[in-house]
Amino acid sequence: MSTDTTPAVGPVEGGHVHDVDNPAPLIEPPRKRTGRTPRSTRGNFEMAAWLFMRLSGVVLVVLVIGHLLIQLVLDGGVSKIGFAFVAGRWASPFWQVWDLLMLWLAMLHGANGLRTVINDYAERPTTRLWLKGLLYTATVFTILLGTLVIFTFDPNIR
């Protein structure tokens, strides 16, 4: 390309450092598909995860709205909540199961949602690995701690 005529591409800061022999680098889109990648993975995990999101979502609507109504609206609202209120509720297996189900479904639903967000947005494999490691650790910790508390709750603790 001659420089004496008006260049087709407007002036760029620093002048033309690139030419036919020294072309500018092309910016590749992230994780380009080739004949070798992605490697095929057998199994129905993604389908199960997708189905779980739909089903747990439906159950969570009932559980969470019920939970919010009981905790925040009905019978005096948030002011009634205290150690005695929680102890009273968890004396019944029904509320134990309710809270346990809500804990597991909400945590797995949220964690799976974040997993898809990481898959969609994290470009580098190492970033993905670290973010997902952090996510799974936090999820497992919260679920186990919550389950432990629900099952070993002692209303007579001093």
């Binding site: 390309m1 260049p7 087709a8 407007g10 760029v12 030419d19």
Partner: peptide, 14 residues
């Protein structure tokens, strides 16, 4: 949006 790797690594609107 013009881009010519033989001229510049930046794309330019013309």
């Amino acid at each position: 949006r013009r881009f010519n790797p033989e001229v510049s690594e930046h794309a330019v609107w013309e």
